[in-house]
Amino acid sequence: MEGKVILSSSDGQVFEVDMKVAMISQTLSNMLKDTEDTGSETAPIKLANVSSRIFNLIIEYGKYHVEAQKSDTSEPTADLKKRVRELVADDKDTLFQLMIAANFLHIQSLLDLSYQIVAEDIAACKDQQMIRQKYNIENDYSPEEEEEVLKLHNIFE
């Protein structure tokens, strides 16, 4: 599909996006199909839940995604995952907002990569305490309860 599509973020910034890039979002793809069917005038589509900061990242990702589909890199997923890590610059709150936006826009590939990144980050924590610190989670176990739960798995190498 050729052409551009006009979108606006929650804070009112207007983006002109390549149709190819916009189509990676299932939500946008459905909206655009509807407008095509009715033949209505293409007013900017307002994305009430996505800020301009996050939308810029989504567009960047969309470009990588379209590129990756064209090129024949040996490890497209690993490559894209690295790009997403660079986009969010190791900031978990940015990653979370990106995930919420990807969920709203139905960008499954970006969601899958983000799940993978969070899972890797959690697995990289050396224990539960480190996971709590990293993600600001309150510990609601008593020390005895925590010890009991830890006993459920006994792992050795």
Binding site: I122, C125, Q128, I137, N139, V149, L150
Partner: peptide, 8 residues
């Protein structure tokens, strides 16, 4: 085991 021990 770490996941279970984070919180309830």
């Amino acid at each position: 085991n770490h996941l279970r021990a984070v919180c309830k």
